[in-house]
């Protein structure tokens, strides 16, 4: 049997190539283009090679933003994943109470991101905010516009309030997919609640938790709108995360070259961490090395 050489099928794939090119590749290559040139105007540009990359990598303010970002994303994962799993475990398995819990959990996810920042500004204001006034009323001075620690606490609270429901929903879906027979077998085997969690629930949730961890890492690493609205990166630079710093540089100072170089590095960092997380989570608990 001879293979028929007919390459017409390639024409059918063209729309996909066009869409991917215009949605991903061309914008990304534009950034690469900017990162290698010094641009003063439409007809005034100079090729500078890797100069912007060297400048960006030696920028101490960028280092500061990167460390803050890593600390922030680390805390997000450490708090939101266990908390989300705990909420999912505590939720009723079925019935109208389960539906109610799902709706309540979904509410923070439905609010526009900059609105979330505004809600938390008002909520934590020391003079009129319910939370801010209550804490100050208890004799603990609290002001996220003045104290870096207070700003961090507020941003973390807001982030946990906003995104833990996503982890909880994913974990809940994973839990509901476990067949009843596993719980029955565990009862007959005399397993404790902790053993049921460790040997049945957690392994069965691995797939959804992998997704949850990747999503929460990527989203928190790219966070912009909520802290920008809430603190504007301050007080000082204490809550200036990578995105906020990038926008300050690109829009505020119009340093398009360094900002483009920074964007590429930023993108590669996210890609690298996501890949590492994925690889680790695929192997954990399966015995593969």
């Amino acid at each position: 049997m001879d293979k028929t050489h007919d390459n017409k099928a390639w024409f059918l794939v063209i729309p996909v190539f066009v869409i991917v090119a215009f949605s991903a590749i061309i914008p990304l290559m534009t950034v690469v283009n900017y990162s290698l040139q010094d641009i003063f105007g439409p007809n005034e540009r100079y090729f500078v090679g890797t100069e912007w990359f060297r400048e960006v990598l030696n920028d101490s303010r960028l280092h500061g933003a990167l460390y803050r970002q890593l600390l922030f994303s680390g805390l997000v994962l450490l708090i939101e994943v266990p908390l989300g799993v705990a909420i999912a475990l505590a939720m009723p398995p079925r019935g109208w109470t389960a539906s109610l819990c799902l709706v309540l959990l979904a509410i923070p996810l439905l609010i526009p991101w900059n609105v979330i920042g505004t809600i938390w500004i008002i909520f934590t204001r020391p003079d009129i905010g319910l939370l801010g006034r209550t804490i100050n009323g208890l004799g603990i001075p609290f002001d996220h516009t003045a104290a870096p620690l207070d700003a961090w606490v507020t941003v973390m609270l807001m982030e946990v309030w906003h995104w833990t429901p996503l982890v909880a929903l994913l974990a809940y879906a994973g839990l509901r997919a476990i067949p009843e027979a596993y719980y029955q077998a565990a009862r007959i085997d005399g397993a404790s609640a902790w053993a049921v969690f460790k040997y049945i629930q957690l392994p069965k949730m691995r797939g959804v938790l992998t997704i949850a961890i990747l999503l929460r890492f990527m989203d928190s690493f790219l966070i912009y709108a909520e802290p920008f609205v809430l603190t504007g990166g301050g007080p000082g630079n204490s809550t200036t995360f990578l995105s906020i710093y990038l926008v300050k540089q690109a829009v505020g100072q119009f340093d398009l070259g360094p900002a483009a170089a920074f964007s590429i590095i930023y993108f590669l960092i996210v890609l690298l961490f996501s890949w590492v997380f994925y690889q680790v989570l695929q192997r954990v608990g399966t015995g593969d090395k």
Binding site: P179, A181, Q184, Y199, P203
Partner: peptide
Amino acid sequence: RARNIAQVFQFPVIYDT
């Protein structure tokens, strides 16, 4: 767990990890 009775289910139940 307090009864001396074991049960095998329709779909195999094993502890994956």
